[in-house]
Simulated scan of single mutants.
Amino acid sequence: MRQVMEEMTTPASLTIFTDGSVDSATGAAGAAFVSGQATKQWHLTDGASCLQAELAAIRDALHHALESHFPHVIIQQTQNPLSSPSETQPQDNIYLLTSTLLLAQRLAARGCKITLN
């Protein structure tokens, strides 16, 4: 994995590590991203799903990328948020999915390449 990252990363790329998780015992949920010196973490509404937490982390990472103006953004996910689509009802995530897609489209419109790992 490290070799693949080194091959993909250039001085013109921004690498962002994302994570979202839920405590199964309490239902507390959170999301975070780390990129160089920038770190952001936040609490989500209790009862959020893992899918929602992962997508929230990716959405905010894309927002950070919009402000950073790099031509290539690499998002490293700890878990594929789409690997368990049956976790919640799809309609529960419409706003989260569309707002994430909108940010990706805004980046693409200005010529930014986005890589999800």
Rank of each mutant, 00 (worst) to 15 (best):
M1L: 14
M1D: 14
R2A: 13
R2I: 08
M5T: 13
M5R: 15
M5E: 14
T9C: 13
T10D: 13
P11G: 10
P11I: 08
P11W: 09
A12W: 11
S13V: 07
S13K: 13
S13G: 12
S13T: 13
L14M: 09
L14P: 05
I16P: 06
I16A: 01
I16L: 08
F17M: 11
F17E: 14
F17I: 10
T18V: 09
T18N: 02
T18R: 07
T18G: 03
D19T: 02
D19Y: 06
G20E: 01
G20R: 05
G20D: 04
S21Y: 00
S24A: 14
A25Y: 14
T26K: 12
T26E: 10
T26V: 10
G27Y: 02
A28Y: 12
A29P: 04
A29S: 10
A29G: 08
A31G: 09
A32K: 15
F33H: 08
V34E: 15
S35Y: 06
G36K: 11
G36Y: 07
G36I: 03
Q37N: 15
T39F: 14
K40A: 10
Q41D: 12
W42Q: 07
W42D: 08
H43I: 13
H43D: 13
L44S: 04
D46L: 02
G47M: 00
A48P: 00
A48Q: 02
A48K: 05
S49I: 00
C50G: 09
C50F: 02
L51P: 00
L51Q: 15
L51I: 10
A53G: 00
A53R: 07
E54V: 01
L55N: 03
A56S: 15
A57H: 02
I58T: 08
I58K: 03
D60L: 05
D60I: 03
A61I: 00
L62S: 02
H63M: 03
H63G: 01
L66A: 01
L66F: 04
E67D: 12
F70R: 15
F70N: 09
F70H: 15
F70M: 13
I74C: 11
I75F: 01
Q76C: 13
Q76P: 03
Q77L: 12
Q79D: 11
N80C: 09
L82P: 07
S84N: 15
P85C: 04
P85G: 08
P85L: 03
S86D: 10
E87G: 01
E87N: 08
E87A: 05
T88W: 02
T88S: 14
T88V: 12
Q89Y: 05
Q89V: 05
Q89I: 06
Q89D: 11
Q89S: 11
P90V: 06
Q91N: 05
D92H: 05
D92W: 00
N93V: 07
Y95K: 12
Y95I: 08
L96G: 00
T98F: 03
S99H: 07
S99G: 04
S99D: 12
T100D: 00
L101P: 06
L103N: 04
R106N: 12
A108K: 15
C112R: 10
C112N: 11
K113P: 05
I114A: 08
I114V: 13
I114E: 04
T115C: 10
L116W: 14
